[in-house]
Design a protein around this nucleic acid. Structure first.
Length: 250
DNA sequence: AATAGTTCCAACCGCCTCTGT
DNA sequence: AACAGAGGCGGTTGGAACTAT
């Protein structure tokens, strides 16, 4: 069923103050395309007069930009595009039109919609309700506390097994905070001999690498706390620990 | 098969900025 | 400089389609 028929059947396309609203019909699309062919983009308020459309300028512009433009790319957002969106959103925030400029054929509306359905739930910004801000602070405090506990454990390690944390930090910095491979670590630093101490060190590296920055979002925190849970499992459950060691290191 | 929950996406709204007068 | 209109932008809504139970 076409939008036009649907609109008619369901009472959409209401006319308010002389302007039609709701879903566009094929005929309206055709008129708008004709208009842009003849007059180019812009001067949207002239569309009603020159093209015989009962739509306001804003509605026409939106329809053209988001749906009728010939250079629009249809279909699913690709993993590559998704990566770009994530990167640019981390950089620009909700500046959808800015992000859209880096994705030819994609509209700000499309990117905005994609973000909302795929990532919004996981990434509430700190401008939330006081309760959420409080919860976030609490989790941050928990994190700091666990870091302190971790540090204490680390300091308890046998002196001869202590590793050069400065070297690890520089490795992380060099690799853009990606966790170095175990082989790389073993090459660069003196590693503790005891497996549970190795696990502890590796957890610390992981935690450091995933340490959230000033503009924290829940997604990062969730991932981070997951790491802490994992770490906690490492030092409390021996069997679990052995398994984690194996997956971490090989 | 029915229902509930989730995702997708077109479209609207209101605010802000830009531009012309 | 002040104002008005147009355009741009981000937030939100609501119905359709899809998926899980």
């Amino acid at each position: 069923m076409s939008w036009g028929v649907m609109a008619q059947n369901m009472g959409w396309g209401a006319i308010e103050e002389g302007w039609r609203k709701g879903p566009w019909t094929a005929e309206e699309d055709r008129l708008l395309i004709e208009y842009v062919k003849l007059h180019g983009e812009g001067r949207w308020n002239n569309v009603a007069r020159l093209a015989g459309l009962k739509r306001n300028g804003k509605s026409c512009r939106l329809r053209w930009v988001n749906y009728l433009r010939p250079d629009l790319k249809r279909g699913q957002i690709t993993p590559h595009e998704e990566r770009i969106i994530l990167e640019l959103h981390a950089k620009w925030g909700n500046r959808w039109s800015t992000i859209a400029r880096s994705l030819p054929g994609r509209t700000d509306n499309e990117i905005k919609n994609y973000w909302r359905t795929h990532f919004k739930k996981k990434t509430k910004l700190p401008s939330d309700s006081p309760e959420k801000t409080k919860a976030r602070l609490l989790r941050r405090q928990q994190f700091q506390l666990q870091q302190q506990q971790q540090q204490q454990k680390y300091e308890q390690l046998n002196q001869q097994d202590q590793i050069d944390m400065k070297k690890i930090m520089s490795l992380l910095d060099e690799s853009d905070n990606r966790v170095p491979s175990f082989a790389q670590l073993r090459q660069e630093i003196v590693f503790p001999s005891a497996p549970d101490e190795q696990g502890l060190i590796y957890s610390m590296i992981n935690n450091y690498a995933t340490m959230p920055e000033a503009s924290n979002e829940d997604m990062i925190w969730d991932g981070f706390l997951w790491n802490l849970d994992d770490f906690h499992g490492n030092i409390t459950g021996k069997a679990n620990f052995q398994h984690n060691l194996a997956t971490n290191f090989y």
